[in-house]
């Protein structure tokens, strides 16, 4: 199995330890980062590709709409919630683990989480930009706005925006200035053609 990036938003030391033990027994290789509030979660999500977020029901200030937002900003992110009782479950999460469940159930569930989180291989490759994305990157780096790009390529602004989201996600670079640096460093555009 490949290496997963996990956010652990669980305050209980014992529960964290327990989860790590289960992961080890299931031979799931994972890099785990601990977050204690929603801001940290968002921050972590910005700086790396996270596959799974395991969070406690008691996790501060997280709501269903917040989770929906996280999931739409980070397609591919699976959210698993640990609960003490059924009332705590947030309906929009992908997986629910009840603390009272027996070993077999818990193992099954955790295994299912990681099965569902398997990243499609092509997305993870490092020269990951598609031809279309490179084309758009070039135009962004030259300083064109989304609607100018849309006009030029005969596509909708909406499509341009979604391409840009993917580009930023793949590269880990969001600002136009940053994308420009990337484009020049990789010879996608000539530095002298900026502005």
């Amino acid at each position: 199995m490949s290496n997963y990036n996990i956010i652990m938003a669980e305050k209980s030391y014992l529960v964290r330890l327990g989860i790590m033990q289960v992961l080890e027994e299931l031979k799931v290789q994972a890099t785990i980062s601990e977050c204690s509030n929603i801001k940290e979660v968002k921050h972590r999500l910005k700086s790396m590709d996270v596959d799974v977020m395991i969070m406690n029901a008691a996790f501060k200030d997280i709501s269903a709409s917040e989770i929906i937002q996280l999931k739409s900003d980070h397609p591919g992110l699976k959210v698993a919630q640990i609960i003490n009782s059924e009332e705590e479950a947030i309906p929009v999460v992908d997986h629910i683990i009840n603390l009272n469940e027996d070993k077999r159930k818990v193992f099954q569930k955790i295994e299912a989480i990681f099965k569902s989180a398997q990243r499609p291989k092509h997305e993870a490759s490092e020269s990951g930009l598609s031809k279309r994305e490179i084309e758009i990157l070039r135009l962004v780096a030259r300083g064109l706005t989304n609607s100018e790009i849309a006009e030029k390529l005969f596509i909708s602004t909406h499509t341009v925006i979604s391409h840009r989201k993917n580009i930023s996600h793949k590269l880990g670079i969001k600002s136009v200035a940053g994308l420009t640096v990337y484009a020049v460093l990789n010879n996608y555009i000539d530095g002298s053609s900026i502005r």
């Binding site: 700086s47 590269l171 670079i173 969001k174 600002s175 940053g178 990337y182 460093l185």
Partner: peptide, 14 residues
């Protein structure tokens, strides 16, 4: 914050 992250990634990755 975003630009700082970009700068980090440019140096680390690219």
């Amino acid at each position: 914050e975003e630009k700082l992250l970009d700068l980090k990634n440019i140096i680390i990755k690219y």
